[in-house]
Simulated assay, not measured.
Amino acid sequence: MSAPHPAYRIKGPALISFSGGRTSAFMLHEILRAHDGQLPEDVVVAFANTGRERAETLRFVHECGVRWSVRIHWLEYRPAGFEKVSFNSASRNGEPFEALIAAKGYLPNAVTRFCTSELKVRPMKHFAMSLGWERWANVIGLRYDEGHRIIKQHVANERRKERWTTLMPMARARHTKRADVMPFWLGENTDPLAPLMPLPQGFDLGLRDYEGNCDLCMLKSRGALKRLIRDNPGMADWWKAREASISARSAKATATGRRFVTEYSYADLEREVTTQPFMPGLLGDDDDLEFDVECGLICAPSLEAAE
């Protein structure tokens, strides 16, 4: 293996945002290599759990920490800020997400995506501030092949509306999903759920790209959501319950605030799954997207108002 790229030498204070997916785990591994396996005291790693993460994601985050001997701070949203949890105590049935929805009185959707800003970005911000930091570097796993997101982050850095400056070492190192991330984890294997050869690192996330982190994320295509519901009976129950609860009880919720997706409900999706024949291969335009919980890179609004 070649020497780590200089971009992975991180100067603190810095918070490494670990999404729980293969990309950010690759980034963390390279940062550790660049620091000879030991991070500086003012460079910390954090993972924000919404309670709707896949069980495979939680296991993967835990395993990365144990195998690589790095402390990963597990955080969860609380109305007053955040709470530190662990692999064992982390919420697994959407409790932080449900509490946020109850506080808001309406549901996030493709236009109003407050789930990311409140459940992930804000807890990490408050955690960094709890360390006494006024300003810091926010290290995120954006690859070189994610050009539009990289541009978006550069623009955000120039605006300087947040307490942090975003660093993208994978983009600087020109590391991509196809050439670097997937071979690192899967080697010559093509199916992560049925590897034919030993895994290069001895372990892996164990999910296909469309399965992602947040189990039924509203940003996934209709086809992907239907396949997930078909393959995982009961997965839609939590989402259906939130939509039903808001519709029945909340005066705050407009028509768009009563569904995660404006065009259809999760009950509609489940009904389609149970009444229509299975059409393999029809996931939608995001079949090749990696839903690895870097959702904050896609949709988190500015937190300037929280300063």
Score class of each variant (00 low, 15 high):
His5Gly: 07
Pro6Gly: 00
Pro6Cys: 08
Arg9Trp: 08
Pro13Glu: 10
Ala14Leu: 11
Ala14Asn: 12
Ile16Asp: 06
Ser17Lys: 10
Gly20Lys: 07
Gly20Phe: 13
Arg22Tyr: 11
Ala25Leu: 10
Leu28Glu: 08
His29Val: 09
Leu32Pro: 05
Ala34Tyr: 09
His35Phe: 05
Pro40Arg: 00
Ala46Trp: 09
Ala46Tyr: 11
Gly51Ser: 05
Arg54Leu: 10
Phe60His: 04
Val61Cys: 09
Trp68Val: 02
Ser69Gln: 14
Val70Gly: 04
Glu76His: 09
Glu76Val: 07
Tyr77Gln: 07
Gly81Trp: 10
Phe82Gly: 11
Lys84Asp: 10
Val85Asp: 08
Phe87Gln: 08
Ser89Thr: 15
Ala90Trp: 12
Ala90Leu: 04
Pro96Met: 02
Lys104Ser: 05
Lys104Phe: 09
Tyr106Lys: 02
Tyr106Trp: 15
Asn109His: 09
Val111Tyr: 13
Val111Leu: 11
Val111Met: 03
Arg113Val: 01
Phe114Tyr: 15
Cys115Asp: 13
Thr116Ile: 03
Ser117Asn: 03
Leu119Trp: 06
Val121Ile: 15
Pro123Leu: 08
Met124Thr: 10
Lys125Met: 15
Phe127Asp: 01
Ala128Ile: 05
Ser130Met: 01
Ser130Tyr: 03
Ala137Glu: 13
Asn138Ile: 00
Val139Asp: 04
Ile140Trp: 05
Gly141Gln: 05
Asp145Glu: 03
Asp145Pro: 03
His148Tyr: 12
Lys152Cys: 02
Glu162Val: 00
Trp164Tyr: 15
Thr166Val: 12
Leu167Pro: 01
Met168Tyr: 04
Met170Pro: 03
Ala171Gly: 07
Thr176Phe: 05
Arg178His: 14
Leu186Val: 06
Gly187Glu: 12
Asn189Glu: 09
Pro192Ile: 09
Pro195Asn: 06
Met197Ala: 14
Pro200Arg: 01
Gly202Glu: 13
Phe203Gly: 07
Leu207Gln: 08
Asp209Cys: 00
Asn213Ser: 13
Cys214Ile: 00
Asp215Glu: 12
Leu216Asn: 07
Lys220Asn: 05
Gly223Glu: 05
Ala224Glu: 13
Ala224Met: 04
Leu225Gln: 10
Lys226Gln: 15
Asn232Val: 00
Pro233Asp: 03
Pro233Met: 00
Pro233Asn: 02
Gly234Val: 03
Ser247Thr: 12
Ala248Cys: 07
Ala251Gly: 03
Lys252Pro: 03
Thr254Ser: 15
Ala255Lys: 13
Ala255Asn: 11
Gly257Ser: 11
Gly257Tyr: 11
Arg258Met: 03
Arg259Gln: 15
Thr262Pro: 04
Tyr266Met: 01
Asp268Gly: 09
Arg271Ile: 00
Val273His: 06
Gln276Pro: 02
Phe278Lys: 05
Met279Cys: 13
Pro280Ala: 06
Pro280Asp: 01
Gly281Ile: 04
Leu283Val: 01
Glu290Cys: 02
Phe291Ser: 02
Gly296Arg: 01
Cys299Val: 08
Cys299Tyr: 14
Pro301Val: 08
Glu304His: 14
